[in-house]
Amino acid sequence: MQVAMVSIFVEDPSKAFEYYTQTLGFEEVMYSPENYIAIIKSPLGDGDTTILLEPTQPNGIQVAIDYKKKLYEMGIPVITFKAADIYKTVEELKEKGVKFKKDPIQTDYGFEAIFDDANGNYIQLIQLNSF
């Protein structure tokens, strides 16, 4: 088996779609704002894994709203993205206005940083050591 799609709960899929494509550089797979559907993919890699920007509004499922809110309050990232050069990527994102909760730090497995996606989520960015 292989991961085909993952979801990130967002408050506003149109705002999130713009942020993820224009600011973070993801590519459109499907975008239907009138139906609250926004699916994106990374421009890197094989492109087989997509991300559904899953709306919590309007008429969202309460458990999803609560889950998203609690993770944000606890400072827990909802997904992890990989960078080849984390310091370069962080600088490029900061120049685009991305707000970082945690600047890059070294870990046992490489480097990590955490940023706010401007839609109520924290995203972890990692650069893995070569094994």
Rank of each mutant, 00 (worst) to 15 (best):
N121F: 11
E112S: 11
P104Y: 04
G97D: 09
F81N: 00
K96R: 14
E73P: 11
I86K: 01
D46M: 06
D48V: 12
L93P: 04
K82Y: 10
D46E: 11
D66Y: 01
K69E: 15
D117N: 06
A113K: 04
K70C: 03
I105L: 09
T107R: 06
T50R: 05
D117G: 04
G97W: 07
E92S: 12
I105F: 06
L44I: 13
V78K: 05
L52T: 07
L44R: 13
P77W: 03
K82A: 11
V90G: 01
K82T: 13
E95C: 00
P104K: 02
K82H: 10
I51R: 02
A118S: 15
P77E: 04
L71F: 10
A113F: 04
Y109G: 04
E112C: 09
T49C: 14
I76A: 14
G97V: 07
F111M: 12
T49L: 13
I61F: 09
K102L: 15
L52D: 15
Q62M: 13
T56W: 10
I61A: 02
G120P: 13
V78R: 05
T50G: 01
D103Y: 04
N121P: 08
K96I: 08
T107C: 05
A83L: 05
K96M: 07
L52K: 08
A84T: 15
M74W: 08
E73N: 14
N59P: 00
Y72N: 13
K99W: 00
P55W: 02
Y109L: 12
P58E: 11
I51H: 03
E73G: 13
A84N: 15
F115V: 06
V78G: 12
I86F: 01
A118E: 15
F81M: 07
A113T: 07
D103R: 00
D103N: 14
F111P: 00
T89K: 10
K69W: 03
G120I: 10
A64R: 09
K94M: 14
